[in-house]
């Protein structure tokens, strides 16, 4: 395949991966652990939002992230003509 197209494909992929991993880190390490004290004012069923992210929210976000990535990447494959026929 042509080099320039493949480079554009790869950098688009890296951009997408970076965005997803930033969200991945914010919900788990951020909201779930380090930033929990900042969210302690927001109550969720007998506890606070940080607890919810640590035990439930982050898992839901992870799921959305993977499907979002798969969907976007498969579209990128087609756009750059590198998909499997």
């Amino acid at each position: 395949m042509a080099e320039p197209s493949s480079n554009a494909y790869w950098s688009a992929n890296i951009r997408l991966v970076t965005i997803c991993l930033v969200i991945w880190a914010i919900v788990s390490f951020g909201f779930g652990i380090v930033l929990r004290p900042l969210l302690s004012g927001i109550g969720v069923g007998g506890t606070d939002l940080g607890f919810w992210f640590a035990q439930q929210g982050s898992i839901i976000v992870f799921l959305v992230l993977i499907f979002f990535y798969a969907f976007r990447m498969n579209a990128l494959d087609r756009k750059h003509g590198v998909d499997e026929e």
Binding site: C20, G32, Q55, S58, I66, A70
Partner: peptide
Amino acid sequence: GYDNSSFLMGWTGGYVLLALL
């Protein structure tokens, strides 16, 4: 309690790395 939430986030969050990387 909360302090062991690591298991929950860790053993699911790894799939994001697996799928993306």
